[in-house]
Design a protein around this nucleic acid. Structure first.
Lengths: 221, 221
DNA sequence: TTTCCTATAGATGTATACATCTATTGTTAG
DNA sequence: CTAACAATAGATGTATACATCTATAGGAAA
């Protein structure tokens, strides 16, 4: 295993997903030599990947120490989420591309998967649907600069929502069903602006939940 | 010359500025070996810098060919500017930091420099003031994610505005005076939201001018 | 026992040789 | 003369040896 032909892009996606899915929790120290050995290549392309991850604020490279998966404080988490709320509102505003029946079908398929998730929960399946939903919506964005920003914000914050959802998974599947139902409705109506606002709202719900977890108002200990 | 001790960060800033100031016009092919020789280091740290520039969409690295300074088509220029218009509106909205007398003084100093520019124009001085104004406003942004996005958008589009301003420099100094006057007024009023809206407006003025240059409505040929 | 200093293991940063890829130029077949 | 192809120069991509930096463990002095 691991003897496949990896490209820097594929290794980047692999490491990014490991960080997002908390296979590498915040604080994890990655070693270039170890990763190089795992993927059967030298340190040079591994370094390029790590530097790219560093640009996305997913890791910090420290000379003589290693590459450390970043953690986040409450203030920075708020910064990311407040930004995402505002950027979501732009999705349907800045020249979205035309919605097609394919988009509708893709959302419907995700909705069916989410419904199955309610009765048979799986963290892995939850995140696959989540990622697919993100990709679906990002693909609607016609403005390339907005799409890039939207993507970066998503990957910057995903793991912190994942951590919270893993701690208290109650209702996340139902919420995902509700979100995808609304998105399907908006796509049927060919209303890209509605899609953006639905995203905004569900990001806000998640944000409220994260804030409640950070500042537990009812510490009945 | 060039024997000073450069760091990757300083080399990054140098090359970024050369691209922004059109010392390296779009289409220029940069060679790693040449740059390495110029800065007295090996290709390795040069490659790290070029990859960072590529991440900011300032260059494209092509295997076997070289690192090419990116050009831009009308559609992408519109994408960037439409995004900047929207992001500017967020400057005073997403938790700006408190405005201090120092900010006021800095803006006033820039205004004085801009006034001198009207009678004694210098492209170099124009861009130093422009950059300083950008840094001043970016520093007001309390949301770190917004600040990063704002910065990236600025450096992504700066050279295209510079190219247009160089072609027809009439009025750019006066416009800069007007913009800095308004910014000074907003800072005196401690009104960060006003600063953001002023930025939005002058970006819109520049955008209109760029569009007019791209689609000359009066092609009397 | 505590504290400070020093030696060291092991990490990233850098330089360089080599592999691979691209564009071009020159040659040859039609 | 034109077009296709092959050889080649020179670029980036990769692997690796070496330089430098960091944290830590261990020993000596107070």
């Amino acid at each position: 295993m691991g003897t496949d032909k990896h490209t820097t892009a594929s290794i980047y996606a692999i490491l990014r997903d490991r960080i997002c899915l908390l296979d590498y929790p915040p604080g994890t120290v990655l070693r270039e030599a170890t990763l190089a050995k795992e993927f059967g290549i030298s340190r040079t392309p591994i370094r390029a990947v790590l530097q790219r991850l560093e640009h996305g604020s997913l890791v910090t490279v420290r000379d003589g120490v290693g590459t450390i998966v970043t953690d986040i404080d409450a203030a920075e988490l708020c910064d990311i989420y407040e930004m995402r709320l505002k950027v979501a509102e732009l999705i349907g505003v800045l020249a979205p591309r035309d919605i097609t029946p394919d988009d509708e079908a893709a959302a419907q398929a995700l909705l069916e998967r989410a419904k199955r998730l309610v009765t048979h929960y799986s963290a892995s399946e939850y995140w696959q649907i989540n990622h697919a939903q993100h990709a679906l919506i990002a693909d609607l964005i016609g403005n390339s600069v907005l799409r890039e920003t939207w993507d970066q914000l998503y990957y910057h914050s995903a793991r912190f929502w994942y951590r919270e959802a893993s701690r208290a998974p109650d209702g996340v599947a139902q919420d995902l069903v509700a979100e995808l139902s609304e998105i399907s409705r908006a796509l049927r109506a060919r209303d890209a602006r509605a899609v953006g606002y639905i995203q905004r709202n569900f990001i806000a719900y998640g944000f409220a939940r994260l804030k409640a977890a950070l500042n537990p108002d009812q510490p009945i200990s």
